[in-house]
Design a protein around this nucleic acid. Structure first.
Lengths: 207, 207
DNA sequence: CATTGTGAACGGGTTCACAGCA
DNA sequence: TGCTGTGAACCCGTTCACAATG
């Protein structure tokens, strides 16, 4: 399967399918249908079938999909049938909260190092990590071969830090800073800015 | 202008335009063009012009857009030429970090109350707020007339709490819990789940 | 003369509808 | 019979291209 032939928007829905399949599994279900999965997610059944068909036939006519099997297949497609190490940059309130978040483990990720450039913060303990100095960042990331970073630094520092991360060999960045990053195209970048989403919603709120 | 006639995807881009316009203003620029704005955001100039044209002609041929004026217009369109109160539900690590985040104020929002159902947490201080008991939630939200909530409770509790929020008069929810919410269509819901975004990116990471 | 605003062309994602199969 | 997988039709968002204009 050639990854670049599959619409990015389709890839982006797979994690959501996985999320809901996990929930169904927790509730003891063995099997589901495109109909049921779609209802849960607010997506049409046809779209789910079409999306999955890009990767192969995972279902059985008349019966639907085995949840366990589909979970396994999606994990393989998304390459999360392994655990990815993450470097966290920025040990402010948000960074600390993320470092201690328990939900990464069983979804394919774990934070393995945390950096900050504030001397008052470097050396302090956050969960089970000691905050390292940003000056050691490139070397530490290279050494362990970490490929994914989360960025929780002030907006003014984000672009610079991101460039350093790329230099260190990072290939995917989840950016919590409220600025658009300008990086080589081959670097994967996703953004989290709650305010953008709040502003989107207020458009629809009368008064 | 009839809000429902404008593609939702267009509305979703306006906050990003605003974000970049603010940045340009901070850097001392007075004027910009669809070209420049697009380059900054990785969006085509034509799309930006088309998006803005849904709402009116904000630019001048030959010159471009006055940044200050466009910011003002976008704020009005998004209804953030006012400050929206937010109720935060869930005072765990993430909730606490959000409550103390300084970036809401000048972008149209402020957290005004925070709730939790854990007796060990209720009554404690988070930034300048005292965590209130969830049992008081409906009344407190109704009384102040808060319309927006952020949800940072465990996945298992999210649906139930969301329903209670709707009952209290909440009309928009920013959900940090990793579950799809099932609510009346007129309720605005946006999701933040970093793991979905990480999983999206790993698809493109070889090995 | 640079840049907007916009109708028309285009392209790609979604939905439809049904053949195929357990 | 129920539900999947999929080609075709459809629809809607993006890009194109240019007239309009400060």
């Amino acid at each position: 399967m050639r990854p670049e032939l599959i619409p990015d928007i389709v890839v982006g829905r797979l994690p959501r399918y996985l999320q809901t399949l996990h929930k169904m599994a927790r509730e003891g279900e063995q099997t589901t249908s495109s109909q049921e999965l779609g209802a849960e997610l607010g997506i049409s059944a046809a779209q789910i079938r079409k999306d999955l068909s890009f990767f192969g036939g995972f279902g059985k006519q008349g019966t639907g999909y085995s949840i366990a099997y589909l979970v396994e297949q999606l994990q393989e497609i998304l390459k999360i049938n392994q655990v990815w190490d993450i470097a966290l940059v920025g040990a402010g309130n948000l960074g600390k909260a993320i470092a201690q978040y328990q939900g990464f483990a069983n979804r394919g990720f774990r934070v393995v190092m945390i950096f900050d450039n504030d001397p008052a913060v470097v050396g302090t303990q956050v969960g089970k990590f000691t905050v390292q100095n940003s000056t050691e960042m490139v070397e530490a990331i290279r050494k362990v071969g970490v490929k994914i970073a989360m960025l929780t630094v002030p907006a003014s520092a984000a672009q610079k830090v991101a460039e350093t991360l790329v230099e260190a060999g990072i290939r995917a960045i989840l950016n919590y800073s409220p600025v658009a990053l300008n990086l080589p195209v081959q670097i994967q970048v996703e953004y989290i800015d709650p305010i953008l989403q709040l502003q989107h919603m207020t458009y629809y709120l009368g008064a």
